[in-house]
C-alpha cells in the first residue's frame, strides 16, 4: 500500500505555477492576518508615517504656507508639504523594515525551518510576503491620506495624470523596498537584533532623503550621497505626484527628473531581487 501511494505522489509534481500562485495567495492572507495581530509592528511600521505626519503638521501648523510665489499665491500648508515625504517613508518602512525584521525573526525563531520541512515553494513564501506588504502599505497610505485630507485639509490631486504618477511611483517603490527587505534580512544575526540593525539604517536614510528635512537645504555632498539610495527618489516621485507643479523648481535640477527616478528604482529593484534569490536560504545550514 505504501508503495502504491508513493508511486502516485512521485508522478504528480508540486512545483507547478498554479500551485505556487494558490499557495502564495494563501500565504498572503495568513501573513496579513498575523501582521495585524502583532502590536509592535503595527505601531512602528503601519501607524508610524501617520503619527509622524500628525506631529509635523501640528508642530508647523502656525508657520504659514510654503512655496508661495512673489504675488503670495501658489503656496501650500506645511502639512501638504510633508505629505509626500511621509508617503515615501511609509513605502520604505512597509517594504524594507517590515520584511527585513520579519524574515530575520522568522529565521531565528524556527518559523522558516518549519516551512523548509514542508512542501511550500520558496516562491509562494515570497509572494505571500509581497502580498502582505501590498495590502498593508495600501491601507497605510489610505489612512495617511484620509488624515491629511480630513484633519488638516490637505488638497489631494484632482486629475488622473497625477494619480497615475502616484500609482507607478508607489508600485515601483514598494517592489524595490520589498526586494531590498528580503535581501537585508540576511544581515541581522539574530531576530532579537534585527530591529536594532535595520531601523537606524533606515532612519538615517529618511533624514538625508528629504523626508523630514527639505532635500534642497542639505549640503551638496549629502545630496549626492542620498541620491545613490532609493528613498530620495521615492520621495521625489511622491512630490511630483502630490505637490503643485511649481514646486518642481525647488528640486535639485529644477525638474521632477522622472527618468532618473525610474532608472534608479529599477536598478535597485533588479539588484535587490538578484541578491535575494542568491542569498535566501530557509535556514542557516552549517557547513
Amino acid at each position: 500500500m505504501t508503495a502504491i501511494r508513493s508511486t502516485t505522489t512521485t508522478t504528480r509534481t508540486l512545483g507547478g505555477p498554479g500551485r505556487i500562485l494558490r499557495l502564495g495567495a494563501g500565504r498572503a492572507v495568513y501573513e496579513t492576518r498575523s501582521y495585524f495581530r502583532q502590536g509592535d509592528s503595527l505601531f512602528f511600521t503601519f501607524l508610524f508615517p501617520t503619527v509622524i505626519f500628525v506631529i509635523f503638521a501640528v508642530a508647523f501648523g502656525s508657520s504659514g504656507d510654503v512655496g508661495a510665489g512673489p504675488d503670495g499665491t501658489g503656496g501650500i500648508s506645511m502639512a501638504a508639504y510633508y505629505l509626500p515625504g511621509m508617503a515615501a517613508a511609509g513605502v520604505l518602512l512597509s517594504g524594507i523594515q517590515n520584511l527585513a525584521v520579519d524574515i530575520a525573526t522568522e529565521r531565528s525563531d524556527g518559523t522558516l525551518k518549519r516551512l523548509a520541512g514542508s512542501p511550500l515553494p520558496v516562491l509562494s513564501y515570497f509572494l505571500g510576503k509581497f502580498g502582505q506588504v501590498l495590502v498593508t502599505s495600501i491601507l497605510q497610505l489610505l489612512l495617511l491620506f484620509l488624515v491629511a485630507r480630513l484633519v488638516f485639509g490637505v488638497e489631494l490631486p484632482g486629475d488622473a495624470e497625477h494619480w497615475a504618477r502616484f500609482g507607478w511611483v508607489y508600485l515601483l517603490g514598494i517592489a524595490t523596498s520589498a526586494a531590498l527587505g528580503i535581501a537585508l534580512s540576511r544581515v541581522p544575526r539574530t531576530g532579537k537584533s534585527a530591529s536594532a540593525v535595520i531601523v537606524p539604517i533606515l532612519l538615517v536614510l529618511q533624514f538625508v532623503s528629504g523626508v523630514y528635512i527639505q532635500f534642497s537645504v542639505l549640503p551638496d555632498w549629502l545630496q549626492t550621497f542620498a541620491s545613490v539610495f532609493p528613498l530620495k527618489w521615492i520621495a521625489q516621485g511622491m512630490r511630483s505626484a502630490l505637490l503643485p507643479e511649481n514646486f518642481a523648481a525647488a528640486e535639485p535640477g529644477g525638474t521632477w527628473d522622472v527618468g532618473t527616478t525610474v532608472l534608479v528604482l529599477v536598478a535597485w529593484l533588479i539588484g535587490g531581487t538578484i541578491v535575494s534569490l542568491l542569498t535566501f536560504r530557509w535556514n542557516r545550514k552549517d557547513a
Partner: peptide, 15 residues
C-alpha cells in the same frame, strides 16, 4: 518539494 510532501517533521525545538 515532492519529496518533502511525503515527510512529516517534528523538530526538537518548537517554532
Amino acid at each position: 518539494i515532492d519529496w518533502k510532501a511525503r515527510l512529516g517533521i517534528v523538530l526538537q525545538s518548537t517554532g
